[in-house]
């Protein structure tokens, strides 16, 4: 194998692209109205007008416009996704619910990370807890019954929530244990994905974490006869506790 410097390969590919792009392409979505035959000049080049996405959001499934609508939509999406969504009155009430789930599922080991919301919750749970901050042994995380994390935002439009590798306990905490519990405040719930990506940019734009994941429901697969099964490789259960 001839070793070539990466710069050469990059320049070579970019040069091919620039050469290819010398001939303009017709306007997108102009089916069958372009040039017929290779010698016929293509249709006039479409002048690309800024960013269409800000407009595009109005064509997407709606996320609601008031906090109450956001809540209703998030609850409806969660029900369809089989996310266990519980909106409660206070943090204390959330801890009560958390203890109930822990008792009914018999959690022996809990995994979490340090943050005001999770610290209060793990203290209230009072069970052996693995904190992933600063590194951990994967085998020890694998045997935990639950991963409890915070999130950046929640999205009413899709029933999703966003975790990241810096402030939600790393990459594996939210996917390796069989149950993922998310603790969130009501003001973290936004309308649609456009809002969510803007908030993520505000939160992390100057210093990006290495991973940001939009989580929509528990892990799922339909690979066998298109029949839905939860818990393919990630968590079988997803619980969102919000107050």
């Amino acid at each position: 194998m001839v070793e070539e410097s990466p710069m050469n390969a990059q320049e070579r590919i970019l040069a091919r692209i620039r050469e290819a792009l010398k001939v303009p392409a017709p306007k997108p979505g102009s089916h069958g109205h372009g040039g017929h035959g290779r010698d016929v000049a293509p249709a006039p080049v479409f002048a690309f007008q800024g960013r269409p996405v800000q407009v595009a959001r109005s064509w997407l499934p709606p996320g609601g416009s008031t906090p109450q609508e956001h809540l209703t939509r998030f609850a409806a999406a969660s029900a369809e996704l089989k996310t266990d969504f519980r909106c409660v009155e206070s943090e204390a009430e959330a801890h009560v619910q958390l203890r109930q789930i822990a008792d009914s599922e018999g959690w022996a080991r809990v995994a979490s990370h340090h943050s005001p919301l999770t610290d209060a919750a793990t203290t209230a749970l009072a069970r052996p807890t693995l904190f992933t901050d600063g590194g951990y042994v994967p085998d020890e995380l694998e045997v935990c019954d639950v991963g409890i994390t915070t999130c950046d935002v929640l999205v009413a439009q899709t029933g999703s929530l966003v975790v990241n590798s810096r402030t939600s306990g790393g990459r594996a905490l939210s996917v390796l244990p069989p149950h993922h519990v998310v603790l969130a405040r009501k003001d973290q719930l936004l309308g649609d994905l456009t809002d969510a990506f803007q908030r993520i940019e505000q939160l992390h734009g100057t210093h990006w974490p290495s991973m940001i994941s939009l989580v929509t429901g528990p892990s799922r697969t339909g690979d066998i006869e298109r029949i839905l099964v939860l818990g393919a490789h990630g968590p079988k259960k997803l619980t969102v506790l919000m107050w």
Binding site: T158, W208, M211, L214, P218
Partner: peptide
């Protein structure tokens, strides 16, 4: 589906201060 189960953005290898990756 409305959106797929996991849509994950990766911006780099493990960054300073991160616990895994």
């Amino acid at each position: 589906q409305t959106v797929t189960g996991y849509n994950t953005l990766y911006g780099g290898p493990r960054q300073p201060g991160e616990s895994d990756g």
